[in-house]
Write a protein that binds this DNA or RNA. Structure first.
Lengths: 135, 135
DNA sequence: TACCTGAGTTCAAAATTTAGACTCAGATTC
DNA sequence: GAATCTGAGTCTAAATTTTGAACTCAGGTA
């Protein structure tokens, strides 16, 4: 938790990762979307690459020069649950309404959500859980 | 998401909430645990109270003067899933081992974890999900 | 009365963030 | 082949935030 907090405990980092999940992966597109200062954006992207959450991949669009894209690594994609849980919380307690945020089954389109489950995958009510976040 | 990021996108805020989930609720105990500067801690606690995530409750221990405790509100407790998901991620991708972090059934002690489920509570693989975090 | 403690506030110094100008290499245009 | 454009930065000075250390203040104790 402590290290995770160090990585995610930053406004821009959180927003950059949201962009990455949304599929935005180019420096200038992120800058445009987030209105983040260049130096801060560069700094955070480098940090995320150094942490193994994003990776910088060269790519080339037809008839264009080679550019760099920032894409989520396996570890980065692992944050999806955290982001979904956060979005779900924001929807319930902050924005106060059904925001256009969530997850859906890629094939059936059925809405999905984050929940607490036991080892057999059976959902358990949050109130039944004892948390242990230290460490 | 954007507003949620604004609230949680801060190193101390994340750590303060971890303390709160762990049951630490007194100013000086948090200061001791986190080694946070007083002014920053005061500032973040006030912010969390203003946002309705913590509330300041006076309380009195036997034979002691009245003091103030910062406890999670209903909205604050709603962040538990997010924290568990984050702790789970940290365990899997950052600290690289089974850290003493997680959740367990309060009665049976069975370990619990965060997962993506469909409307019927049936777990769905993360790779099947299409995310929609905008909004 | 003098002292201790929890929960702050105040203040100057240090660190970080910001906006905006500048750079630089590869393509494209003239 | 000179001038221009673009993506992806770097540099810089000013503004903002964070930090640590000292100070305050009220209630209770010795």
């Amino acid at each position: 938790m402590a290290l995770a907090a160090e990585i995610l405990g930053d406004r821009w980092t959180l927003l950059i990762l949201r962009e990455a999940f949304y599929g935005v992966c180019r420096y200038d597109d992120m800058r445009e979307d987030l209105k983040a200062p260049r130096s801060t954006l560069t700094d955070r992207l480098n940090m995320l690459v150094a942490r193994g959450i994003l990776e910088k991949q060269p790519y080339q669009e037809a008839g264009d020069r080679v550019r760099r894209a920032y894409v989520l690594t396996e570890a980065g994609r692992g944050l999806a649950l955290t982001f979904l849980a956060l979005a779900q919380w924001g929807e319930a307690h902050v924005t106060g309404g059904a925001a256009p945020v969530g997850a859906a089954d890629r094939e059936t389109g059925a809405p999905l959500h984050v929940a607490l489950v036991d080892a057999d995958g059976v959902p358990v009510d949050l109130a039944r859980a004892a948390l242990r976040l230290r460490g």
